[in-house]
Design a protein around this nucleic acid. Structure first.
Lengths: 348, 348
DNA sequence: ATTAGCACTCACTCCGGGCGAGTGCTAACA
DNA sequence: TGTTAGCACTCGCCCGGAGTGAGTGCTAAT
C-alpha cells in the first residue's frame, strides 16, 4: 500500500484542520468540511492506512487522528518545494526597519520583536558571527589618569572594548603613537593570531610591556568569550496555545528560553542550508519534543552570517511562519549589506 | 478597638503561614501550629477584629482569612524597622562576582541571574544612570576608507559609539588631530551641551563641517535614546507559584516582562530611599495587582545610580527577599566603586 | 476575657450516568 | 473492486448529587 494522491489530500486536510484547532480530527470532519465527495467511512479506511504508514497517531482508540512528525515533515517539504511563500506585510515591515542608524543590538532585538508579533510564536535572532574577524585598527584612548580604553576595530565592526590600567601616566599623544604601532603591527590578524604575537611585541617594546600585555588580555578575553547577544521576542505568546496549558511544560520551555547560551546553540545548529525546518524530535532537544523550529541564515555585508528562528508548537502554521522568516531574513540581509550607504550598523 | 500586641502576633502568624502555603488560613491552624496558648475560638474573635481593621480578607464566608495589602505593609515596615536582615550566602555570591574584568552588561545580567536564583522570584536589574555624564575624550578611529568610528568617553565610561561617514579620505593622523581639537573643546560638557556647541564649531572649522555634524548627530542620538539594557532573570520562576496557575495572568505578566521599557519605568520609580517595597496596588501597575516589588538603588563609582528589584507574589518571603536584595545591592555598589583597582567595568 | 459547643456554609472531591464523537467491521451496492 | 451505509463498541468529557471537611459566627458556660 503506498501513498497516492487521494491519501495525500486527506492527510493535508487533516494537518490543516489540526493546525487550526489543536484537536484530534475525525473522519466525518474531513468528509464534510473539506469538500471531498467521499463518505466518512471511506476517509476512515484511508486514515487507517495513513496511520499504518506512520503519518497519523491516535491518542486513544475512540479519538480522532493527530498528524505525526513524519506528516509535518512531508507537509513542509511540499511547502518548501512549491515555494508558495507569500510576501504580504513586506511593506510595513520594511518601514519598521527604515531610517536611523542603529546599533546591531537594536536591529536584532527589533527583528525578534517583529518576527514574533508577525507569527504569534516565539522568535529568536542571533547576530552575525563567522570567520574570525580581522583587526583593522587598535586605539588606546585616555579615560582617566591611569586608565585607558582599548578599542579594537575589526572588519566586523567594533569588538567590545575594555578599560585597562596604564602604569605610567601616558598622555594622549603617547597613547596615540602606541596605538599606531599596534595597528601597524596587527592589522589583518585575527584576534587569536594577535594574541600569539603579543609576547614578541612585549620583548621588542619592553618599556610598554605592561600596557601591551593588557591589550593582549583584552583580545584574549574577547576572542574566547564570544557570547553574542541573543534577541528573543514573544515568549509569552506560547502560553496562548493549548499545548502549553500544562504549567510544567510551560515552565520548562520558559527556562530554556532563559538560558541564552543553550538557546543560541540550538538555533545556530541550522545546517548549511539557508532554510531549515526541524520538527518535534528533529530538534534534538528533549524539552522541545512538541515544538518545531524554523530557522534561516542571513548575511551581513562582511560575509558574516546570523540566524533568525521561530519556535512554535509542531502544529504551527508553517506557511505563514516560513513566509515571515523568509521575509525578515531577506530584509536583514539587505539592511546589513554594506551597500545602502547611510547606515553602517556594527557588531556590538 | 485598636491593634494590640496579641492581635499583632496573630496577624504575623497568619501572614507567615499564608506566605508559606498560599492557602487561606483558619483559626485552628494558628491556635495549634503557632504555639499560642489560645483556643481557636479566641483566635476567631481576634481574626474577626483584624478583618474589621482591614488587615484580613475573607475569600468567602466559610474559608480562612488572607492577609490584605495593608497587612503586608505593616509586616514589612516591621521588618525594615527591626533591620533583621541576615546575610548568609554573602560569601558564595561574592565569589560569583569576583575576578575578571567585565562589561557592565555582563555584571547586570549576572546580578539578575543570581538574585532570581537566590529568591526564586523574578529579578530585574537596571544599569547605573544618572546625572548627564560629562565628556572626557572624543576619538575618531578610521574603520574603512570613508568611514570612521566615533568613540565618546565620558565619566560614566564609554557612551555607545557609532560609525559615521567621512567625506574626504582622511588618514588616521588627520583624524587624530581632529579628535584632539574636539576633545579640547568639549571636555567637561554634557552630551546635550556638546550638541548645542556643534553649530559654532562647524562654522569655525568649516572644512571639517560635515564630519563635525556627524559627531554631533551621534551625540544627539545617544543623548536622547538612553534605552538602557534591562537585565531580567527568573521570569519562569513565577509559573511555579499557584497565583499564576491562571494562564491568562501568567501571560500578561510575561508580556509585561517583555516590554522592557515599561518594566524599566516601573522598577526605576523607586523613590529617593535606598530601599523600597511596593505591595500589590502600591505598584500602580494593574497587571501587578497581586505582586510586590522590592527595589534598592545601588551606586557606581561615578555617583550614578542603578536599581535592582525583585518581583514576586504579594505573599513573597519578604525577609529573604529583602536580605537578598540588600546583599546584592551592596555587593554591586562595592564592585562598581572605583576603588578596587584591578577592574573598571564600564557603562555599556 | 476565654473557651467549649453547635449549627451552618461552602468549596472541593468523588462517582455514576448520559452524551457524543469517533472507530472498526461487515454487508450491501455500483 | 472500490465505496458506502449501518451498527456495535469505546472512551473521554460533562454534569449533577452526595459526602467531606475546614472554617465561621454565635451563644452560653467558665
Amino acid at each position: 500500500m503506498a501513498m497516492d494522491e487521494r491519501k495525500f489530500r486527506i492527510l493535508q486536510a487533516i494537518i490543516d484542520d489540526y493546525i487550526l484547532t489543536a484537536v484530534p480530527v475525525g473522519s466525518r470532519t474531513i468528509s464534510k468540511k473539506y469538500g471531498m465527495s467521499l463518505s466518512s467511512a471511506t476517509i476512515r479506511n484511508e486514515m487507517s492506512d495513513l496511520e499504518e504508514l506512520g503519518y497519523l497517531d491516535q491518542p486513544h482508540v475512540s479519538a480522532g487522528r493527530v498528524p505525526s512528525a513524519k506528516a509535518y515533515r512531508l507537509y513542509v517539504d511540499q511547502l518548501l518545494q512549491g515555494g508558495r511563500i507569500s510576501q504580504d506585510d513586506e511593506q510595513q515591515v520594511r518601514a519598521h526597519f527604515a531610517g536611523r542608524t542603529r546599533q546591531m543590538e537594536d536591529v536584532i532585538d527589533h527583528a525578534a520583536q517583529v518576527l514574533s508579533s508577525l507569527t504569534k510564536y516565539t522568535a529568536v535572532v542571533l547576530p552575525p558571527t563567522g570567520t574570525q574577524p580581522k583587526i583593522r585598527n587598535i586605539q588606546l584612548v585616555s579615560v582617566a589618569d591611569n586608565a585607558a580604553l582599548v578599542v579594537i576595530v575589526t572588519d566586523a565592526g567594533v569588538v567590545r572594548d575594555s578599560v585597562i590600567r596604564v602604569s605610567e601616566e601616558l598622555d594622549s599623544d603617547a597613547l596615540y603613537s602606541i596605538s599606531r604601532s599596534l595597528t601597524a603591527e596587527l592589522t589583518g590578524c585575527s584576534l587569536t593570531e594577535a594574541v600569539e604575537r603579543i609576547p614578541q611585541m612585549m620583548q621588542r617594546m619592553s618599556e610598554q610591556a605592561q600596557l601591551i600585555e593588557g591589550v593582549g588580555a583584552v583580545m584574549h578575553e574577547h576572542g574566547e568569550d564570544i557570547r553574542p547577544h541573543v534577541a528573543i521576542g514573544g515568549t509569552a505568546n506560547m502560553l496562548s496555545y493549548p499545548e502549553y496549558s500544562d504549567m510544567e511544560k510551560a515552565r520548562s520551555f520558559l527556562s530554556l528560553m532563559e538560558t541564552r547560551d543553550r538557546l543560541a546553540d540550538i538555533i545556530s545548529q541550522s545546517g548549511e542550508m539557508s532554510f531549515t525546518v526541524r520538527i518535534g524530535p528533529e530538534t534534538g532537544v528533549p524539552e522541545m519534543e512538541d515544538c518545531s523550529i524554523v530557522t534561516m541564515t542571513y548575511t551581513a555585508g562582511n560575509g558574516q552570517q546570523g540566524t533568525i528562528g521561530v519556535i512554535g508548537p509542531t502544529r504551527m502554521q508553517y506557511s505563514r511562519v516560513l513566509a515571515a522568516v523568509n521575509m525578515i531574513g531577506r530584509q536583514l540581509t539587505q539592511l546589513l549589506s554594506d551597500a545602502p550607504g547611510e547606515d553602517i550598523p556594527r557588531l556590538e
